[in-house]
Amino acid sequence: MSQQFAAYATSTGEAFQFWVLGTVAVIGALSTVFMKRAVHSALSLAGTMIVLAVFYLANGAYFLGIVQIVVYTGAIMMLFLFVVMLVGVTAADSLKETIKGQRWLALLCGVGFGVLLFAGIANASLKNFDGTGQANANGNVQGLAALIFTKYVFAFEITGALLITAAVGAMVLTHRERTERPKTQREQSEQRVREGKHLPPLPAPGVYARHNAVDIAGLLPDGTPSELTVSKTLRDRGQLRDVSAQALGDLRALEQRSEERLERTPVEPANLKRGEEASK
């Protein structure tokens, strides 16, 4: 990289790069906040982070730029995606506010804070940019290493301890110790008999030809969906698809058709047409 990249007066190239990529970063940040699905938010954030990595490089922080891509976008965002998958990738959040006045307060605080920050930066006398050319003379990584292992060696050691603690903490939080012997199948069936519910196996989910059917509730004889037929996790995530309305419509059409065959009552043309299509 050339000296002038980090100098006070930046090149036109950098200005162009700033305005283009800066816009991308702001759009990414905004969509992180306003996307309904967590997956989309995560992908937008990853985009913003890559833009930031480029800015790091542009500001002479070569090591940090690479680390930003490898560690942040590569590892941390992937971790986010894993958790999103675990919690339910297709679940869409409602953006409707439930706490009274929260949104207005948040906007007020956000705008106020932003204005204050902007005012503060504008007010500060930030005219003199030294550039990192001098500091990076022996190479950016070497310079960082010299600082980390001399001046910041204690902070460095402590962050090491922090990382280990975090790893152990994550294990403690997510690990669930089995404190009792798991019930055998016989004991489970005996318990079911004792409690007097669901003696037979749970009913199978319903069938819908166009999809894998595990997310579709089976219908009871009267046409209403049965909660028992789908997995609890899907129910909790709100990922069930209710096809009962359609099934009921089909049922009604079938009845009409049979009545028509038996020539009991005159049938409306629209229904008749649809019934004929279905019969073909």
Binding site: I99, Q102, L105, A106, C109, G110, G112, F113, L116
Partner: peptide
């Protein structure tokens, strides 16, 4: 609600 508390914190920071 943690978010209400967060608003207070953010307002305080401002």
């Amino acid at each position: 609600y943690a978010r209400s508390y967060a608003v207070s914190m953010f307002g305080g920071a401002a």
